[in-house]
Amino acid sequence: MHELAITEGVVEAVTERLPDARITCVRLDIGAMSGVVADSVRFCFGLATEGTNLEGARLEISEPAALCRCRTCGDVFEPDGPIALCPCGSADISVLSGQDLKIISVQVA
């Protein structure tokens, strides 16, 4: 839903930093708890890059798993799905990683 705006944000950020370069590949990290659906970004990418210096670029997305710490038992665990529940049963957790949405690198022709 919001992935089109997110993808446009990616294109805009790259274009702003490298306005004269022809970009051949964009590498993104979309964390498992970022709230962004990678497939939707893939779907929007062609449209969002049309007529820009990213047109025709390959999109590589990696989806790092989330890591959470349980405030009840202290364990660090990888949540199973979007609702982070510690194996001990506690829902009182803090998210350590996996919420990031980042452009890691671009390939320039």
Binding site: L18, L28, D100, L101, K102, I103, S105, V106
Partner: peptide, 12 residues
Amino acid sequence: AGRTVLLQHKVL
């Protein structure tokens, strides 16, 4: 030519 430019750009 053909180089990789490393970023750590938060999209938001």
